[in-house]
Every structure is written in structure tokens, then in C-alpha cells.
């Protein structure tokens, strides 16, 4: 059994059907990409896993335990961390407070994240420790939301379009960050539009389009598959 399993989930917003029988499976220690264009269903998949928009049918299994149907805060406490695409730092809290409010599950893991360990990984955040969330640049906000979620000591991290809207230099920095997070033993599921970014950090990929999975395989296979790339990713 895989570490995180989605068994044909169907998710709706109100009356509109967004995800159609989406199944994914991720092994412990992997970085897996979920690639698709705007509106393909990447964010909805993540919201389904974390329980903010629970699936109506199908199930999400994490470490052998069914987590779909639990409320979001319970799922988080089971070890699933979610970084939303729109970088929702708490604007009125300082960088340090943003990190501190998220700290939990320190006893469940061997070497829990501390603010100091976070600062070692993201030195920029230490420099801006006393600034409010609303005073950060886009790239800094992205780092802060990732760091904040790490403070919940997740075993699997859901990263929703971290490279979006960031300058190329920052994106490259971000890729290093993800690889280092993985080295710390965190499994990562990455939603992206940016194929080359995915190629740099992940081993396996799923391609999603119009709410259903169109491709599953290794990153190499995907890069070699021009048909899938043209049809679902390129212009």
C-alpha cells in the first residue's frame, strides 16, 4: 500500500462537478508532480485531500488510514501539510508569529521543525523576522507559507503552484528548497504548470486536465511524450 492514496475521488463545488474519478498514489519519500493548466483541477485535488472541499465519493487513504471525511484541522494533525497557491500568510502577524502559530506535532516526529531550523533553510525569513506578513514580497511570502506549513511537521507536503508569478532566479532557488525539504524526509506532492520546474525536482508525474488524470508515469516518460505535452500542457 502506498503512503498517500486517492481512490477515484469525485469532488463538487456546489452543483458543479470538478473532479472525475481522480486516483493518485504517492510513495514515502517521493517528490511527485501534478501537472496541468489553469483550472485543470489541481487545487481542487489538494483541497479534497486536506478536507477543505471534501470529495463526495471515493476515499483518501493516508498511511493506511482513511482521512477523507475528517475535518481539515484533523487531517493536518494526521501529518498532511497544505500550502495554498495564493500564499495566504497571516497579514497582521510577524514572520516569526506566522511560524509559531502553526507549530504542532512536535512529539509525533523524530526531529521536529523549529523556528531555528526553518531559518537555516530559509535565511531570508530570519532577516525579515519582525516584518508583518503583509510587508513581504511575493517570493518571501511563498517561502513563508511553505515554512509555516513545515512547522506543522507534515509527513506529506501539498505544494500548490509555488513557482507561480515568481522571477526565474527565485524559482530556481525554490527548486533547491524543495529538494532540501525532501532530504529532510518529507514526501512532496507538487501541483504545477511549469513543466521544467517539475522536471528539476520530481521523479514521477501525473497530468491532469478537465478534472481527470490523463497521464501517470515517470518524469522521463512525460518529457519524452510529445503527444501528452502538446495536448494537455502546451499551447
Amino acid at each position: 500500500m502506498a503512503f498517500l492514496d486517492l481512490n477515484s475521488i469525485n469532488t463538487y463545488y456546489g452543483r458543479s462537478h470538478i473532479l472525475f474519478d481522480v486516483s493518485l498514489s504517492i510513495e514515502k519519500g517521493e517528490v511527485v508532480s501534478l501537472i496541468g493548466r489553469n483550472g485543470a483541477g489541481k487545487s481542487t485535488t489538494f483541497r479534497s485531500i486536506i478536507g477543505l472541499t471534501p470529495p463526495q465519493t471515493g476515499e483518501v487513504i493516508f498511511k493506511g488510514e482513511r482521512i477523507s471525511g475528517l475535518r481539515a484541522f484533523r487531517i493536518c494533525r494526521k501529518g498532511v501539510g497544505f500550502v495554498p497557491e495564493d500564499r495566504r500568510c497571516f497579514p497582521d502577524l510577524t514572520v516569526r508569529d506566522n511560524l509559531e502559530v502553526a507549530a504542532r506535532r512536535e512529539k509525533e516526529v523524530d526531529s521536529p521543525w523549529t523556528v531555528d531550523r526553518i531559518y537555516a533553510l530559509f535565511p531570508r525569513l530570519q532577516e525579515r523576522e519582525k516584518n508583518l506578513g503583509s510587508q513581504l514580497s511575493g517570493g518571501e511570502q511563498q517561502m513563508l507559507t511553505i515554512a509555516r506549513t513545515l512547522m506543522t511537521n507534515p509527513e506529506v507536503l501539498l505544494l500548490d503552484e509555488p513557482s507561480e508569478g515568481l522571477a526565474p532566479l527565485i524559482v530556481s532557488l525554490l527548486a533547491d528548497m524543495i529538494l532540501r525539504i525532501r532530504k529532510e524526509g518529507v514526501t512532496v506532492l507538487l501541483a504545477e504548470q511549469n513543466l521544467h520546474f517539475c522536471a528539476k525536482v520530481s521523479d514521477r508525474a501525473f497530468v491532469i486536465d478537465k478534472g481527470s488524470v490523463k497521464f501517470a508515469g515517470t518524469m522521463k516518460e512525460l518529457l519524452a511524450n510529445d503527444e501528452i505535452k502538446e495536448k494537455y500542457l502546451a499551447v
Binding site: I50, L52, R71, A72, F73, C76, R77, F82, P84, R88, F90, P91, D92, L93, D97, N98, E100, V101, A102, A103, R104, R105, R148, T149, T152
Partner: peptide, 24 residues
């Protein structure tokens, strides 16, 4: 205090607080 910070965080973004494991 941490609880106080959690309160302030929640008042600005409930959904995010929920996803970070805060029992609303």
C-alpha cells in the same frame, strides 16, 4: 502567547487556520 496569535491568525483567515490544524 501562542493562543493569542492563533486567535489573531484565525480572525484574518479562517480557512487557512483550519488547514494548519487549528480547531476552529
Amino acid at each position: 502567547t501562542k493562543t493569542g496569535k492563533v486567535v489573531r491568525a484565525t480572525s484574518s483567515d479562517r480557512e487557512m487556520a483550519d488547514a494548519l490544524g487549528i480547531n476552529m
